[in-house]
């Protein structure tokens, strides 16, 4: 397979920028990843995106794996590696530098203000992600019910969410949600 340089470049630029905007982790930038890869670059459909997100959620590890899968869908394995590296490197370098600075100057009031100020914006972005995913995934009332029940279980109980994902996949196998 030949390397698709323009796509790799687009992935590198897009995910390095998102890396520095991902306050609160990858969940905060899902709507932007979705907008770029579905609406702007047409690397995949809305349904593909929902499927890839579901696969990323059911794998172990940190939650930025959706960027790995978007890179893979856009440009194969090289795309997956470029997207992953781009999503990690800028924020890692920034954190490395910040930790050094933090250990030198403890207890600066600006840090508390930045942390407290960014928090509610981040929450709004995670709600946006939920909204984008619900619109992509819930094409019938039955699927909407699965989303609602999962949300309630995860919100109100300490059950490992993986059980909900497994149960929903098994229910899907029986065909109650139809076949796309």
């Amino acid at each position: 397979m030949s390397l698709a340089w323009p796509i790799l470049r687009a992935l590198a630029v897009q995910f390095s920028l998102l890396s520095l905007l991902a306050f609160g982790g990858a969940n905060a930038v899902i709507p932007e990843i979705h907008r770029q890869s579905v609406a702007i670059h047409h690397w995949m459909t809305d349904k593909d995106f929902a499927a890839l997100f579901a696969i990323a959620q059911s794998a172990p590890g940190p939650n930025f794996l959706i960027s790995t899968l978007v890179g893979w869908k856009a440009a194969g394995i090289p795309g997956a590696l470029v997207a992953t590296a781009a999503m990690c490197s800028p924020s890692c370098l920034l954190t490395f530098w910040a930790v050094k600075a933090w250990d030198r100057h403890h207890d600066h009031p600006w840090r508390t203000a930045i942390g407290a100020g960014i928090a509610p914006v981040t929450v709004g972005l995670v709600f946006s992600s939920a909204y984008v995913l619900v619109r992509a995934a819930d094409s019938s009332w039955r699927l909407g019910l699965v989303t609602a029940v999962t949300a309630a279980i995860v919100y109100f109980t300490k059950l490992n969410p993986l059980w909900c994902l497994a149960a929903a996949a098994l229910l899907g196998l029986t065909g109650v949600f139809g076949t796309p």
Binding site: A51, A54, A130, L143, G144, Y155, A169, G172
Partner: peptide, 21 residues
């Protein structure tokens, strides 16, 4: 079939995370 069920649950997971935050 399995993936559409999985995707619906994953959307619920993110909704709950947002609510908890």
């Amino acid at each position: 079939r399995a993936i559409i069920g999985l995707a619906a649950a994953a959307a619920g997971l993110v909704t709950a995370t947002a609510a908890r935050m």
